[in-house]
Design a protein around this nucleic acid. Structure first.
Lengths: 341, 341
DNA sequence: CTGAAAGCGCTAACAT
DNA sequence: ATGTTAGCGCTTTCAG
């Protein structure tokens, strides 16, 4: 067994097999015009040395990698669920999956945050991935030679194919549920203001309130940014008020769960003293106590659709649809009840 | 606004700024020896063109990327939870995270399966990542110039730093719980036979059985491979028997949940007719009905420890420990009860 | 059938 | 202070 002191390159293989690197390359890529005996000899050396072509060098040279890239700001529950769907859909397609996570670092400064996916996509620079899925991107006006699909994107014009769910309808469902239970002072703990989904959920909230003739107290509209810490702070401000709301519609489950935590911390019982509805139906929504009433969004399916669309784009086929919007529905669990009890 | 027809390279920037590519490179990398005026001019062009250095070209040249790679066979619940921990730990370290998923393709043929991480690591070939975390690898005898840490690895000698949990103890806990409830015919739905964790969980099972003086029926020892489908088939075989067990210890939660499904399908009530214990405590273990009694393994913490160790290795520091083993404990929920009860 | 050479985009000596 | 050059590992003409 030969032990290389360092990583083995095509050169090592060539030298050991007594041929040129060009010949080795041809063997690797199964090109014609190599003598059968040579192929065997080279192949033996490749096996012996455990050689694998460098992905980096290859993709600098070629522009085809059979890799699909997914760009996420962070691995929170939503993107995690989405990734499961993406991974499932990618199976048996012949593509491999590479996930880039900005690691949440981007959220420190908004200036860095906006456009991170553009920068990262530029860094990929038409190599390393044949196409990319952008998850909750802050911007979709990306200039990329590789095809791109956006999931739950930023507000604005979409020249990029998009996957999302019926956020407006979902927002209305959640709100109608609270109203039907008898709530009047209903707070909205909004999402990331730059995301289309957050705006639509708020819009659904307002429509449902208006339709029921319930006035919206603008003082009860806060921003949770889809983030636990921000949401907890907002929830505390909300629940510390003497005229606190009897119900909160949180724009995602992470915010809703944070709200429940704060409520318990303040000695409020959920749902007796405060009803909470979330949005997303992430696995965690069943882990918390009480189990969360929430709007179900088919997150994994969204991932599957994103993959399907992207592969069609990569293959230069006409995509079935340029904007996929999946249905949402309400899942009633234990975090909501009639006010006062 | 200048619109490039194709992706912009360092050459485009150099030409437009009227300098050489070397100068642009120096500006990008903040090297000394560039006139302030030149820096400004180049920077302006970079901003104008929206240039970002190609990660691929850079890492072919350098051998430092500030990227940590994680290799997973697939995104199932365990690896997903682990990734959350890894992502959290990597935040604010200055590293970025790239996750490679073999997309489950590897599991088709065992010959392809074994050593996939070795092949992939070779393809990375000392570029693109400064170090890697291998999740449930089939082999750890990797030759990589970049440091490597293994989580829940293959059986065998570990020259690679390893993170796992107290699998033996956990297996014993689960089994003791069933015995304490009064079960005698206890089946074991084992894990992936190549993984150390699966062997240790089985060993824990056998020890607890022996300690309690309960005989092990070897016919009730099956392999679920940590995979839902395989586990479901095994569970069916098990529960179809006239002398079926009254309890099953499944070596991971995915197997346990599959077992519960099969049981209900066969008209068996859980836990009245069959008790089921899992292992892992993944979020899904609370989603299923009945909620799963399981052995808790601090998956996210394992990810954090893996990152910590890897970064120490990358920095050429002595790692705190070369084998981290985290504690496990039993979480009793609703899938277990006294037999016939 | 095989190899020499150019070049993908970038950086680091080494000139000038 | 700036530019020229070589080369990271690979693939692809194009000669031999």
């Amino acid at each position: 067994m030969w032990q290389p002191s360092t990583r083995v390159t095509i050169r090592d293989v060539a030298e050991r097999a007594g041929v040129s690197v060009a010949t080795v390359s041809k063997v690797i890529n199964r090109r014609y015009g190599v003598a059968a005996a040579t192929v065997r000899r080279v192949q033996d050396v490749i096996d012996e040395l455990g050689y694998e072509a460098s992905l980096v060098a290859q993709s600098l040279r070629n522009h085809r990698t059979n890799v699909i890239g997914v760009l996420v700001t962070d691995l929170e529950p939503f993107s995690t669920e989405l990734l499961k769907g993406i991974a499932a859909a990618i199976r048996n397609t012949g593509y491999e999956l590479v996930i880039y996570s900005a690691g949440g670092r981007v959220s420190d400064r908004m200036s860095e945050h906006v456009g991170w996916e553009r920068r990262y996509l530029s860094r990929l620079n038409g190599t390393l991935v044949d196409g990319a899925i952008l998850v909750t991107p802050t911007v979709v006006e990306v200039q990329s030679d590789a095809p791109v699909v956006a999931v739950d994107p930023h507000t604005g014009s979409h020249d990029v194919p998009t996957i999302d769910s019926e956020n407006l309808h979902g927002g209305a469902l959640a709100t109608e549920h609270l109203i039907a239970l008898g709530h009047r002072r209903i707070a909205l703990l909004g999402g990331r203001p730059d995301l289309e989904s957050a705006k639509l959920r708020e819009q659904g909230f307002r429509r449902a309130m208006a339709a029921a003739g319930v006035p919206v107290d603008e003082g009860l509209i806060l921003v949770g940014g889809y983030v636990a810490q921000v949401s907890a702070d907002a929830a505390r401000a909300l629940l510390d008020r003497p005229d606190r709301p009897t119900a909160v519609f949180a724009a995602n489950d992470v915010s809703a769960i944070a709200t429940i935590s704060v409520a318990r911390e303040l000695g409020l019982r959920v749902p007796q003293d405060l009803s909470v509805v979330g949005f997303d139906n992430i696995p965690e929504s069943v882990l918390c106590t009480p189990r969360l009433t929430t709007v179900n969004q088919p997150i994994q399916t969204m991932g599957e659709r994103a993959v399907r669309t992207l592969i069609q784009l990569i293959r230069n086929e006409e995509p079935e649809s340029t904007h996929v919007s999946l249905a949402t529905d309400l899942v009633v669990r234990e975090s909501t009840a009639a006010p006062g009890g």
